[in-house]
Amino acid sequence: MSGQRRIAWLASYPRSGNTWTRLLLANFLSAAAEPVGINDIGSAMPNVLFHGRPWFDSLAGISSSDCTEDEAESLRPAIVRFWAQETQRKATPLFCKAHEACRDTPAGEPLFPDDVTVGAVYLIRNPLDVAVSWAFYLGEEGFADSVAYLNARTSCIGGAGSHELRQRLFDWSGHVESWTGAPFPVLTVRYEDLLADTAGWLGRIASFLRLEGASDRQRLEGAVAHSAFARLQENEGREGFHTRSPHSRTPFFRSGVAGDGSRHLSAAQVGDILAAHGATMARFGYSCRATG
């Protein structure tokens, strides 16, 4: 990995396949006979949550809970630069999961600094399916709140009183525009394409990130098999999953399919999402007739 450009952002709006992609990469990098456990991604690759308070506190040396959200956010570019400089492990990029929009800090500096970035893999998923997946994740009775979240320009998650730092998402279209217009190389991957040809897209991701073995078909197929949805569900059923929301009534790895949105959302909810995001959906090949 040349110079200080060591950070590979794995970015997505929430519930768009980020965790699955990290498991695919972890299994690809581990190339082991046994699958990487869903709670053990960090053992297979250098991997952090950009919004994690423990990571922030350990690199800042001060407690994020003593800071305002603006103060903490303004320190985060320096924190990721420090991580890129100080981490001893050399072989692969340093993977950083992020849900927030690609934007500036309150101090006017890019939150995702270009000078330490190898590139970003941006996962995009049909917002109709995102709304449904998010509602199940949060244990909501209906889908109104998650639809409202996707449509509000001020949406954010985490923050004061949460174990995650504040993450400003924008609305779904704003999130997509922010990442696909980022000032560093971005590989945009549709979740639906990743589902349809997992090994092929994993190979493209590995090649984009210049990972060793990116064209090794056997290795790619092995990682895909180790990350099969049924296997992840079995793993979660056996040992639980730390990322699952305590409010959720369903497993974290619930269905993983494409096209859930039109089956669960009301016509009015579908209409709201299409009205707000139709242009961006069309740009990325999503039908604006609610069939995914």
């Binding site: 059923g237 040992e239 639980g240 009534r249």
Partner: peptide, 8 residues
Amino acid sequence: KGDASGDR
């Protein structure tokens, strides 16, 4: 880890 009861 290992608490797979799914019981919130």
